[in-house]
């Protein structure tokens, strides 16, 4: 089992992802330079946070045309697991692998703080170790995380259970105050229809060790590991 962390010019959470995956799963993990066009050795692709291409034009708008993204798209279409965190989420939106778009935060500030998110769907390869409705403490750090999607698409997403995380308070209630950036319906993370592509603004790699104040992010890496192990066992059978 091997994880691949894509490095774009301007990625800055790549090493954190690498570290968290290595530490939590104990599995192999390697960096993938954005010009790479062969990603066959990888079982899960991570698009990390940062400011790819300086966020010029729109966050993620230029990174989506990096050579590696063509391969990531093919990989996702074949059912491969792809997780985009923060800027990685923005890139997945720009690439059309996930529906919607990001606006500037409602308060026009870069927000860097711990938030609580509620697990709305635990039947995905990324969230299977969470309980449904479980609250996780996990930090955000972004300027463009104000998720937007039109109503028609939103209702389709709801029907398909594609809303994976919502911002909430410590008790798991979704209130106006607990929505840090103004996202439609307090959405913090979504999946594609196939549930093999996840985009989330909060950073699980920043809370995968007790020393960092929360270990809730661990469950995401562990969920992916279990999903991949199961998939492999089925393939061998």
């Amino acid at each position: 089992m091997k994880f691949g962390v894509v490095v774009f010019p301007g990625s800055n959470c790549d090493y954190d992802c690498w570290w968290a995956i290595k530490k939590v799963t104990g599995e192999k993990v390697d960096f993938i330079w954005h010009k790479e066009e062969n990603i066959e050795e990888f079982d899960c692709i991570v698009l990390p946070g940062g400011f790819s291409y300086g966020d010029y034009l729109r966050a993620g708008a230029i990174a989506r045309f990096s050579p590696v993204m063509r391969k990531v798209k093919e990989f996702a279409q074949k059912g491969g697991l792809v997780i985009g965190i923060c800027n990685g989420f923005q890139i997945l939106l720009e690439a059309g692998l996930l529906p919607g778009a990001m606006r500037k935060n409602k308060n026009l500030l870069f927000i860097c703080k711990y938030t609580y998110i509620k697990v709305e769907n635990n039947l995905t390869p990324f969230t299977k170790l969470f309980k449904k409705g479980e609250v996780a403490k996990i930090p955000i750090a972004h300027f463009e995380g104000n998720y937007y999607v039109d109503e028609k698409t939103l209702s389709e997403m709801k029907k398909n259970n594609q809303i994976i995380f919502r911002y909430c308070n410590k008790e798991g209630k979704i209130t106006e105050d607990s929505n840090p950036n103004g996202s439609v319906e307090a959405i913090a993370g979504i999946c594609n229809k196939g549930k093999n592509v996840l985009g989330m603004m909060p950073h699980p790699e920043r809370c995968s060790e007790a020393i960092l104040g929360s270990e809730d992010g661990k469950l995401i890496w562990e969920s992916i590991k279990i999903s991949l192990a199961k998939e492999r066992a089925e393939r061998i059978k």
Partner: peptide
Amino acid sequence: KILVNPVI
């Protein structure tokens, strides 16, 4: 293709 995000 790139300059505009048609979603928003």
